[in-house]
């Protein structure tokens, strides 16, 4: 029996106002990483020019010890969703923002994600710092430059930045900022903090 359908696959693509111009020649990406509910999707949504989209990856693709030639029926299709948004920087350059969960069991997603990424924003909820420790350690290991953004939830007790720096064991040069991920300007400023940090890193490397 032929499993393939020859009917055209009807796919709703981007709305015409969301189409990139013909001049779009290259794209870069920034990764927003943090625990569940920390505000990743909210941040992406607040600055994105398109409604955030979701892409999925299957756990089995990560090679979690699954024999490729074994029957597919034995594979479980555990999928992990990643939200992303887009900002057109100019006529040629497009910036994509990917939100990804920080828990260790999702690190298999990181290979394709961080390869070629400009850098990362570690989004932190001060009530749950544990996830951030692992994430920060992992980014340092991979050599991914990052900044830390504290998403200020009203229920969270206020913490001075220097207290958080000590708690997260962050070196002096890594920027820490507070933000409200629901606000476009605030989210934009987080991204600018990362870019200015990358700029200073690039200048100091050029100089040396």
């Amino acid at each position: 029996m032929d499993l393939r359908s020859s009917d055209p696959l009807v796919v709703a693509g981007p709305r015409s106002e969301d189409a990139l111009p013909e001049t779009a020649a290259a794209a870069v990406k920034i990764v927003i990483v943090g625990g569940f509910g920390v505000g990743k999707t909210t941040l992406v949504r607040s600055v994105s020019e398109i409604r955030p989209l979701t892409t999925e990856e299957t756990m089995t693709q990560a090679g979690v010890g699954v024999d490729d030639t074994a029957g597919v029926e034995r594979k479980t299709a555990t999928t992990v969703a990643m939200d992303f948004g887009r900002i057109s920087i100019n006529r040629e350059l497009v910036l994509y923002l990917f939100g990804t969960p920080g828990q260790q069991r999702f690190w298999f997603l990181w290979n394709g994600l961080f390869e070629g990424a400009l850098g990362a924003v570690v989004l932190v909820d001060t009530r749950r710092l544990e996830v951030s420790f692992d994430v920060i350690g992992r980014l340092e290991e991979r050599g991914v430059p990052f900044v830390v953004a504290i998403n200020t939830f009203p229920e969270a007790p206020p913490h001075p930045v220097e207290e958080l720096r000590a708690a997260l064991d962050l070196p002096e040069h890594v920027p820490i900022v507070h933000c409200d991920a629901r606000k476009r300007d605030s989210s934009r400023d987080v991204l600018l903090t990362l870019m200015r940090y990358l700029h200073s890193l690039a200048l100091s490397t050029e100089a040396s």
Binding site: I89, L93, V144, P145, L192, R196, A202
Partner: peptide
């Protein structure tokens, strides 16, 4: 790991 300065500046200005 180190994107070039001009690229970083372009993204900064866009933002």
């Amino acid at each position: 790991n180190l994107p070039d300065v001009a690229l970083i500046e372009a993204v900064m200005h866009g933002l």
